[in-house]
Amino acid sequence: MTEMLLVLIIVLAVFSLISRDLIHSVIALSAISLLSALIFTLHWAFDVAITEAAVGAGVTTIIFVWALKHTSRKDI
């Protein structure tokens, strides 16, 4: 199970790094956060999972979206 999720994370990471549309990248990044929160729960790390979900998927995404809103969605 962990391996499968990790493969998924790697795929998402590659996608978020090569995507031209930055909003897609950011959504992939927050999906990575959510999947890693899932891995944390599988490994009995509930505190870390809550933090990752709240901070990694929540606050980071808000800040990224804010930054894109004031710059541009298109990469380079």
């Binding site: 509930f46 505190d47 999972a49 809550i50 933090t51 709240a54 901070v55 929540g58 606050v59 808000i62």
Partner: peptide
């Protein structure tokens, strides 16, 4: 239980948001 100040604080912030 799992959770604590930091996580709670972040959730409160999202509530305020």
């Amino acid at each position: 239980s799992p959770g604590g100040g930091f996580q709670g604080g972040t959730i409160i912030a999202s509530g305020i948001m």
